[in-house]
Amino acid sequence: MPEEFKPGCQRPAVKKQKEEVTDGTVMEPVKEEQQTMIKVGKPAPPFSAPAFFEGKFVNVDLSEYKGKWVLLCFYPGDFTFV
């Protein structure tokens, strides 16, 4: 039977399975490249992303906001609680 879980403050994670190779050794899931924290006083990494805005689907490019103050907020997922 599928196991029931309680919703938390982020989307439920997909568990990465360890792969077992034929000779019995266990392969760890491949680590993606190391993330480094960006630095204050340095340029914000440029990006372009699809967005929902004023009833339309649009493409947002950070460079279009030059000349304005930007508050860029990331969050764990739509329909989460806080």
Binding site: K39, P43, K66, W69, L72
Partner: peptide
């Protein structure tokens, strides 16, 4: 994560 980016694009 919440970032304040100024009019020159600086964090």
């Amino acid at each position: 994560g919440r970032f304040i980016i100024d009019p020159d694009g600086i964090v």
